[in-house]
Nucleic acid binder design. Structure first.
Lengths: 200, 200
DNA sequence: CTTGACATGTAACGAGTGTTACATGTAACG
DNA sequence: CGTTACATGTAACACTCGTTACATGTCAAG
């Protein structure tokens, strides 16, 4: 059984997804939910407390959704980057990520007001994607690049709404990495045969 | 001779670079410049007019700086992406770009309030970089990817401040493109010899 | 010296902000 | 029924917001 507060949080998330963070105001917010500013303060203590709880709840849910995605991935041949991309632009997840990117930028420009909500953010999943790289390629530069490709393309998607072109760009990047891998001389030298992670 | 207004604009730009857009307020702004809100309204008509003029001035200056960079580039062997990156993270330009990225995000979340300042933005230079690609590679996906790599890495720089690692990632990407180019069978078929841009 | 354009100072207006004081309702438990 | 915890409504507080009315200053041109 959900408490009144949990119900409120759900509705608040919905509102934030549609209205963004930068010009949030209690009274219009309350009115949209059919309640009053008085109530919001009553349940969350302050506007800041409200933001903290709502954003926390959102991050938690996103993290869960992402974890379950990684665990039960149907097609193991699919590249992690593509897998993650498809997840991120799914109608269900897209607005949430969009909001987190807004938060990210606001925090960069105004750490005093927003920095606290940032503890850990996309750093988590960018690392997770990085894990998918063969160990020899898992340099800081490559991991950073991988994360940046995702961030940049997502930003482009937010700006233009062009799902097709941005997804093409994701695939282009994957192709690039593959081709470069072909071109590179094999550095592996210990065992000429078998895969590289050693016996188990 | 600069008019009072032009002087004001210069000071305003300086203030915006340090404080961002999202919580801009006339009175603190005026106080920081040693003037009054009354004066700002007097010169710019409204807060909105002020923002329009200041951001316009900023974009104009950035565009000039970028143009002169492209024209007089010293080392023609340097890759355009790297050239542009170095320009963007230079101490002089970095805060401006940072502000434009904030504007970009705010406009995405709140087109009503900020959309008007966006007419043309980074689309300009991302196209310019794209122009540097050999024609065969200048697909929408590749151009999009190129722009996204820049955006994503700049975002990462804004968040972490790690100039070294992000620059390494830029170089990593350039290397990736080069290696992939090697690996790919040559599509050019018209002339087997000489470079491809034709006689000069 | 007077005129007139530009610049500035003081103070206020009405609206919106987050937050609070105080009173009232609802419903479960003894 | 009475008590108690939770929820809610009404109204206000102190403050900031962008903007404006009105008066005053500066300073060059006639």
């Amino acid at each position: 059984m959900k408490s009144r507060k949990e119900i409120l949080i759900d509705e608040l998330v919905g509102y934030l997804l549609g209205h963004g963070l930068s010009d949030l105001s209690l009274r219009p917010l309350a009115e949209a939910l059919g309640t009053s500013a008085r109530l919001l303060i009553y349940h969350f203590g302050s506007k800041e407390g409200l933001l903290t709880e709502v954003l926390d709840s959102m991050q938690t849910r996103l993290r869960q959704s992402f974890s379950s995605l990684v665990e039960q991935r149907a097609d193991p041949s699919e590249r992690p980057l593509k897998l993650f991309w498809d997840w991120a632009i799914a109608r269900k997840n897209y607005p949430h990520l969009k909001l987190l990117y807004e938060l990210q930028i606001l925090a960069v420009q105004n750490p005093v007001a927003y920095g606290q909500y940032l503890q850990r953010n996309n750093s988590n999943w960018s690392v997770l994607i990085g894990t998918s790289l063969p160990e020899a390629e898992r340099t800081p530069a490559m991991v950073t690049l991988l994360g940046a490709v995702f961030d940049g393309l997502f930003l482009e998607l937010m700006s233009t709404g062009d799902r097709k072109r941005t997804t093409q760009a994701v695939l282009q990047f994957i192709r690039l990495v593959d081709e470069a891998r072909e071109a590179r001389p094999v550095v592996q030298r210990k065992t000429a045969k078998a895969s590289n992670t050693g016996p188990r």
